[in-house]
Simulated scan of single mutants.
Amino acid sequence: MNAPVRIFAALPAAETDDKDKQQGLELTCLNKPVREVQVTGVAEVSCPADRAWLLVSVTSTKDSINEVTNSISRRLEYISQTIRQHGVSEEDTTVRRTLRRHAETYTMDAEIVVTFSEFKKMEHMCCVLLEKLDKSVQVGTPRFFHSAACLSELRLRASVSAVENAQQKASQIAEMLGESLGATLLVREEETKEWRNEEEATDGERSLTHVPPLLPTATVTSQVSVSFSFKDKSRKKL
């Protein structure tokens, strides 16, 4: 409840007697109460991973550095070409090479890490590489994850849905009381929680050619407090 407003007024000396001069006139008036309703809204939203990274590794052993380098380069060129044909840009591809010497031979390992946003194309590319290349090329199990943009959008959806649920609740309360819901006075986010079931992303026993890997899911819950005013019934309709 709003605190009362105190107004002090003194009568002019010419119009008051001594008793009135000694006692001030105190007028107290109360503010008009604000007609509003405050409700809470809760929402929970989820979405699967929208990105996956895939590791393709190549190994070659030759008698000279030149031979092993050429061998790896030919395989990498074919792999890179296949990756580009499946719509992956160079920014989403990383290549690392490691050279080792064993007695009179040289071994070079190369790893290509590819980030995909279209999982169907990733599955098709894996099948192509496994079919066309020999056993020196290994295609790993994809690891799925959520991009920063995806998580940001998920958090926004949770907050907006919570506010919408609060507005729906307030509308039902207003209707029950015979009131009309007015403008929003205050929106405050009370609590937000976020979690992911990452265990689904690392199931190494699943295969692209047999059982499709389960996608990890991110979930966000949001709780908001919203205040709405009631429309003034005394206001004349235009």
Rank of each mutant, 00 (worst) to 15 (best):
M1E: 11
V5I: 10
A9Y: 10
A10F: 02
T16H: 03
D18Y: 04
D20W: 06
Q23A: 11
G24L: 12
G24Y: 14
L27I: 13
L27S: 08
C29D: 11
L30Y: 11
L30T: 15
K32E: 15
P33H: 10
R35W: 12
E36A: 11
V37N: 00
V39M: 06
T40D: 15
V42T: 13
E44G: 02
E44L: 08
R51M: 11
R51A: 09
L54E: 02
L55A: 14
L55M: 14
V56G: 00
D63Y: 15
I65D: 15
V68P: 04
V68T: 11
T69S: 15
S71P: 07
I72K: 05
I72Q: 00
S73E: 15
S73V: 12
Y78A: 12
I79Y: 03
I79C: 05
I79N: 02
Q81C: 13
D92E: 12
T93K: 08
V95N: 09
V95I: 15
R97S: 12
H102C: 10
H102R: 14
A103G: 14
T105I: 14
T105D: 13
T107L: 06
M108Q: 13
E111I: 06
I112E: 05
S117Q: 08
F119V: 03
M122G: 01
V128I: 09
L129S: 02
L130E: 15
L130R: 04
L133N: 07
K135V: 08
K135I: 04
S136Q: 12
S136F: 01
V137H: 00
V139R: 04
G140S: 08
R143W: 07
R143I: 10
S147A: 06
C150M: 10
S152R: 02
E153K: 00
R155H: 11
S159P: 01
A162F: 01
V163E: 09
Q168P: 07
S171G: 08
S171M: 09
Q172K: 05
I173V: 09
I173S: 04
A174C: 05
E175Q: 08
G178D: 07
L181V: 05
A183C: 08
L185R: 08
L185T: 04
V187L: 05
V187C: 08
E190K: 07
E190C: 03
T192L: 00
K193P: 06
R196E: 13
E198G: 00
T202R: 06
E205Y: 04
R206G: 03
R206T: 10
T209F: 09
T209G: 12
A218L: 07
T219Q: 02
V220M: 03
Q223H: 06
V224Q: 02
S225F: 03
S225R: 09
S227N: 09
S229M: 09
F230V: 03
D232A: 06
D232I: 00
S234F: 03
R235V: 14
